[in-house]
Nucleic acid binder design. Structure first.
Lengths: 228, 228
DNA sequence: TCTTATTAACTGACTGGTCAGATACTTGGA
DNA sequence: TCCAAGTATCTGACCAGTCAGTTAATAAGA
């Protein structure tokens, strides 16, 4: 059944030089994220972007370049926005702020977009040291810095004891991340599932307990016996 | 210069059917671990094992099967042995035990063998759900269980407050892991390095502080305001 | 009509998997 | 103890499929 011709039918394709790069980067993120860089073909990416492979080469010189460009465009996708809202609604303690932050962090880490990004980064890091370094500096360290500022404020207010806030912040992130990664990537078949609320509660309790200043000193004299 | 013949010279190759599988698995671990499953060719693996590609197919039906066999053989490579030495040298508290354990954990996570395994697992998990599930159950959950027993003992002894030991154990692991992975894989160029001693000390302090029973209650009434 | 974004067919290199033949080792007869 | 026939193991050349990257032709838009 032939299409009625000369019927002002939509063109088979449109020229879209302004939006193509973004379009391709988005498709690349989806495809690379799900199948992995080497499993995904450029035809896959092109199909996901609604174009053909040749077009990709008009905007990106190679598959590797497309990949690193995608990474660069997603620097902010690896870490959730941690608002260091200076003011806040008055009487909110850093403690409370960390609680909500914890839940938000965990949810973010469980999102498919984050997990895809994490997987991609871990997989390809050795092959793209420069892009990885950029991502690490601009994305990860940056976000960690923001979280550290929240903790720093708690220390300054006397709520928390003195601790290197950078290290504490990363430790906090690490606790949530291991649950998200374990369940999202490894236990994808819901092996040993643990409810979100339980994870968030326990992790936050541990962290706060370890940081609160109320106890005289967590360790009697430094890192306790056995740590040499 | 021809080799003097009939001089009992070494054979070009030897028959080694007993050791070949192991040999191949070891080479596969090295090669897959460094280059990744899809980047590594079977010729690479064969060369690393000192044989040729055809030989691999005498022992493994396909590349994918070789990979899953390798995973299976390395189940114990993902987690360090946590001796739950019941007796111990008398007056060792669970607290002290966790301190040494923490350092040991962190060192283990920083080892190239562990990092390679972690990377491999994260990368290929979606493609090999069955092998991943096996690995998760037999390796990860198992090791976590052993660590949880150490914590459980601390709770039973009244040293620690009541906490789900499985979750606490994984949180403990997560804190060390994020530092090892960040520095080993992402910050491979020694971006923002942190000395081992500092990491181990601070992480262990936070964890112990969050677990010790001394304070009346970490949270006033459950997970505190803001956690809803 | 001219410019240029896009397509679609094409190429060349690479690699998983196969297999015919070569080689180390074993066995048994003298 | 020697040697020949036989077998298990291994090699290396080969094939078929795949895919990154190229390009001649086409169609949108001005």
């Amino acid at each position: 059944m032939p299409v009625a011709k000369s019927h002002a039918r939509a063109p088979r394709w449109r020229r879209r030089p302004e939006v193509r790069p973004q379009q391709i980067l988005e498709a690349a993120f989806r495809v690379f994220g799900t199948r992995g860089l080497h499993q995904a073909t450029l035809d896959d990416v092109a199909r996901a972007a609604g174009i053909t492979k040749g077009t990709i080469y008009l905007y990106f010189p190679s598959k590797a370049d497309l990949f690193t460009a995608m990474l660069k465009a997603r620097v902010n996708g690896i870490m959730p926005p941690v608002e260091v809202s200076t003011g806040g609604p008055g009487a909110v303690t850093t403690r409370d702020r960390l609680c909500t932050l914890g839940r938000r962090l965990y949810r973010f880490f469980c999102s498919p977009a984050y997990l895809a990004m994490y997987r991609t980064l871990i997989s390809e890091a050795p092959q793209f040291p420069r892009a990885t370094a950029h991502f690490y500096r601009e994305g990860i360290l940056q976000a960690n810095q923001r979280l550290a500022e929240v903790i720093q404020r708690g220390i300054a207010a006397g709520e928390f004891r003195k601790v290197d806030p950078i290290i504490a912040a990363r430790a906090f992130v690490g606790m949530f991340q291991i649950f998200a990664v374990s369940q999202g990537l490894l236990g994808g078949q819901r092996l040993y599932p643990i409810p979100e609320a339980k994870i968030v509660r326990i992790v936050t309790e541990i962290f706060l307990g370890g940081l609160l200043a109320s106890r005289a000193g967590t360790s009697r004299r430094g890192p306790a016996r056995g740590l040499r």
